[in-house]
Design a protein around this nucleic acid. Structure first.
Lengths: 193, 193
DNA sequence: CGCGACGTTGATTTGCCTCAACGATTGTGG
DNA sequence: CCACAATCGTTGAGGCAAATCAACGTCGCG
């Protein structure tokens, strides 16, 4: 069942009655996204918050020179959206697309508001979710400020060994904030030890 | 009254009855921190979440070479803590100290849990608070990935013109992820236009 | 099969850092 | 209140980490 993983995710922090689960499900939609398909384009309005059931997606920007910068990586059991655009219903700063064929569960802004109203426990759930996301980003900021490219790469493969397998080097470099050429050099250097 | 600013901050997102305010106040402590005084040291446990009534504080790390990296800047009407340490009650990764004489309102982890239990509306308040903090950090990550040092500096003074006045260049450079020497060069270059 | 994206490698350039010296400012103890 | 130390900001010289540019082999996909 599509919602199984989502329920297990939620039950880590709050407990739902059957009736609550049913109400929750009635506010959701599911979607299948194939590789390279866009969930969101810069300038569009982010209509949904997305829970990843399977697969892998990224949120990224493209700068003046056409370079991509991955702001957020999501795999199964994570959430992904352009939160600012979602909350304010204004044009998105990010692109979101799928790096692998993915299944997602979506909730719209209005439905999420309804959910908060009908089942206030979800305030708690998302409070904890954003708390954790905030901490993870704080650590990433700290690493970007204090580590060299090599150290950041080593931290990345230490922290996300499974992710390293699933991403291309171009994607990893774009997440780390270096060029693919330089990542290739680092890897060669590290291999020669 | 010390709690006035905090109540106004909170009332942006939730509405409290008088009895609720009283309960809330009973769970808080106030503290005065003088310039350069530490609120938290790396390795200590972060016992409180801190609301800044007046003044200015920073959260930062020190790397192997002794360089400081500012992860979080807070002025009046903001919150500051080492959230990970606070939530898990494990040793902190950050130092927190005051850049100006500051007044803060503090809540301990246990009292915050009590607050969530007794007044669930606070789940909503902190959900929104962390949501906004998450968005702000996401933007900072994106800028660190996609902008040059000069562009980041210009963005900083555009976004926080009042903060620029209150911080030393050393502090600004440490927030931007560059050296004070290089910031000085950038400023000279920008002035010659 | 052929095209386009990817990863590798080398040569060169550049953005930012380190080191060092100096004047100005701040803070502190006598 | 002054003297002295410490920190800060500026400037210049030189160095290094990472970027750019370019060429080439490989692979996956249409």
């Amino acid at each position: 069942m599509d919602f199984e993983l989502l329920f297990r995710n939620i039950s880590r922090h709050i407990t739902l009655e059957t009736a609550e689960k049913d109400l929750f499900i009635s506010l959701l939609q599911t979607k299948r996204v194939r590789r390279k398909e866009y969930l969101l384009k810069q300038g569009d309005i982010c209509r949904t918050e997305n829970f990843i059931v399977s697969g892998c997606l990224r949120a990224y920007t493209i700068d003046e020179e056409g370079q991509e910068h991955i702001v957020l990586l999501g795999v199964e059991d994570w959430w992904i959206s352009d939160l600012y655009s979602f909350l304010t219903q204004t044009p998105a700063a990010f692109f979101i697309d799928a790096l692998e064929e993915s299944e997602i569960v979506q909730i719209t802004r209005n439905n999420l508001e309804t959910l908060y109203e009908k089942i206030p426990k979800f305030e708690r759930f998302f409070r904890i979710l954003f708390q954790n996301a905030f901490i993870a980003q704080q650590q990433r900021i700290n690493q970007n400020l204090s580590l060299t490219a090599e150290q950041r790469y080593l931290e990345f493969i230490r922290k996300y060994p499974q992710l390293e397998q699933r991403l291309t080097q171009k994607q990893i470099s774009s997440y780390l904030g270096i060029t693919p050429v330089f990542l290739s050099m680092l890897r060669r250097k590290l291999a020669n030890r």
